[in-house]
Each structure stands twice: as structure tokens, then as C-alpha cells.
């Protein structure tokens, strides 16, 4: 972003990468794929790079409102400093926090999740599923991230990205507003689960495996981790792939 400003240019959209997208090896790949999509359709975008910091979501969900607001207000200062008006995030948690919780602290932006960006591009005819890997005959199911689905009523956008593939889409019984959490939300990602009889991601993966899909699609880096761990738990990495909506789009278009 700083480089763009130095050149006296303004981006159409800011890509908010998020902590997972910046540091988690698996999520880094998704980050690069989101960039590929943006480049492919010729949208001029920027990232904050080292100026980006945690939105404060895990702090807020863990009950530390001080730390959340410190993070939020610092981020808002930076975003406002660059005159940002439109943001796309690679993570439903960043999406929810910036979209819903920043306005009350003075940060007002148009915020979309990358699945919504992909949906818009498909609707505008700028993005298709051609020139890349064929998904014909593949069975795909989508796992709704809580903060995208129930949290913000975004159910159709990620599905739109799958519908343009020539694949067989199947829904789990617990989908959309009845979707089952992967187990990572509410700062659970960063702690061991409480004592119980089963891990939540295993409960979810059991449901995934019941459908016997080739691909389980995700839209959140934390769901990605939880689902991948669940698949590994059953040693099914070769049969069932966990792929982000952005990765599927990139593959389908051979980007």
C-alpha cells in the first residue's frame, strides 16, 4: 500500500490478508490464489503488508475488549490514513469484525469476503470456470463458516463459485443456517478444547465423510485447519481434499 501511495496511485480495493493468510503456510497459499484472481480480472488492489495487524477478533471473542479496541482503533487509523473505502478479506473473522464492529469505533468501509468478490466477478461475467482443471464428476460439499453464514447471512456467494463448475454439489445435513461449527471459533483455535467425548472437527468430518465427497470446500483459514486435521485423523488426505473457494476458482481457471 505504501508503495502505491508513493507512486501517487490509489487501489480499487484493499485486500485484507489477515493473520492466518499472512503466517499460516496453508493459508498463505490461499492468499496468493486470491491475488491471482484479482490480477486475472485486472482489479488494481493493494495490501497493507507489514502495516496490517490483527483485527482484534480473537481478543474480543476471548473477552479482552481492551485489546480488541486497541487493535481496532490502530487499524482504523491506518486504513483511514490511506483513505481506504473498499476492503476484501480472505477470512470470515476479519470480514465480520471490520464490517460490523469497526463502524461503531469510527471505521466505515465497504467490506466483502473473498467468496462475495468471486460471486460478483462471476455475475459480471469477468470470471468463468475455463482453461483450467476440470471438476466434472467431482463430488463437492461446502462447509459454511459460522462468521460468514449465520454471522452475516452469506450462504449463496461461496456456493456460486462452486455452481459454475461442472461438479456434483452435495449438501451436508447441517448446512447453511444449521451449519455445524468446525470448532475453531470464539478463540478456540488458540487453546485446547475442554474435556469432552469428541473433538468438534471430528464430529464435522464424520458428517463430511458420510457424503463421500472428493472435495470439501472451505471459506475460512481456521475451518481449513480444523477440517484438514479432521481428514488427517482418518488418514483420508488422498481421498478427500480440503480446498478454499479461491483455490478451486484458481484451479478451474488455470491461473
Amino acid at each position: 500500500m505504501a508503495e502505491l501511495v508513493a507512486k501517487g496511485e490509489e487501489p480499487e480495493i484493499l485486500f485484507w490478508v489477515g493473520c492466518a493468510g499472512s503466517f499460516d503456510e496453508r493459508a498463505q497459499k490461499i492468499t496468493r490464489d486470491i491475488c491471482k484472481i484479482l490480477q486475472h480480472v485486472g482489479i488494481k488492489f493493494a495490501v497493507l503488508g507489514t502495516e496490517e495487524s490483527c483485527t482484534g477478533d480473537p481478543a474480543k471473542r476471548a473477552g479482552n475488549e481492551f485489546l480488541f479496541q486497541m487493535q481496532a482503533m490502530t487499524n482504523i487509523q491506518i486504513l483511514d490514513g490511506y483513505n481506504i473505502s473498499k476492503i476484501v478479506t480472505g477470512c470470515p473473522h476479519c470480514f465480520n469484525t471490520i464490517k460490523n464492529e469497526y463502524p461503531g469505533l469510527g471505521g466505515n468501509y465497504e467490506v466483502i469476503h473473498h467468496s462475495q468478490l468471486i460471486q460478483q466477478l462471476i455475475d459480471e461475467g469477468k470470471l468463468k470456470a475455463e482453461g483450467g482443471e476440470s471438476f466434472k464428476g467431482k463430488k463437492i460439499t461446502f462447509h459454511d463458516p459460522c462468521y460468514l453464514g449465520r454471522g452475516n447471512n452469506v450462504y449463496e456467494a461461496p456456493r456460486a463459485a462452486l455452481e459454475i463448475l461442472d461438479a456434483e454439489l452435495v449438501e451436508m445435513k447441517r448446512c447453511k443456517s444449521n451449519g455445524l461449527c468446525c470448532g475453531a471459533g470464539g478463540a478456540q483455535m488458540f487453546k485446547e478444547p475442554e474435556k469432552g467425548i469428541k473433538d468438534i472437527n471430528i464430529e464435522r468430518i464424520d458428517e463430511v465423510l458420510d457424503l463421500n465427497p472428493n472435495i470439501v470446500a472451505a471459506g475460512c483459514p481456521f475451518c481449513m485447519t480444523m477440517l484438514s486435521d479432521g481428514i488427517k485423523n482418518y488418514n483420508k488426505e488422498d481421498e478427500v481434499k480440503v480446498l478454499d473457494i479461491a483455490e478451486i476458482t484458481v484451479r478451474a481457471n488455470g491461473l
Binding site: 493473520c19 499472512s22 498463505q28 507489514t50 483455535m189
Partner: peptide, 16 residues
């Protein structure tokens, strides 16, 4: 360090 994991903010753009 502005992230829930112990990574340096200076490494935030390493994915690129």
C-alpha cells in the same frame, strides 16, 4: 506482535 501467533510483524508479507 499484532498476530495471535508468535510471528514478527516484519514477516507479514513473506507469503508474497
Amino acid at each position: 506482535n499484532g498476530a495471535p501467533w508468535k510471528y514478527s510483524p516484519a514477516d507479514r508479507l513473506n507469503w508474497a
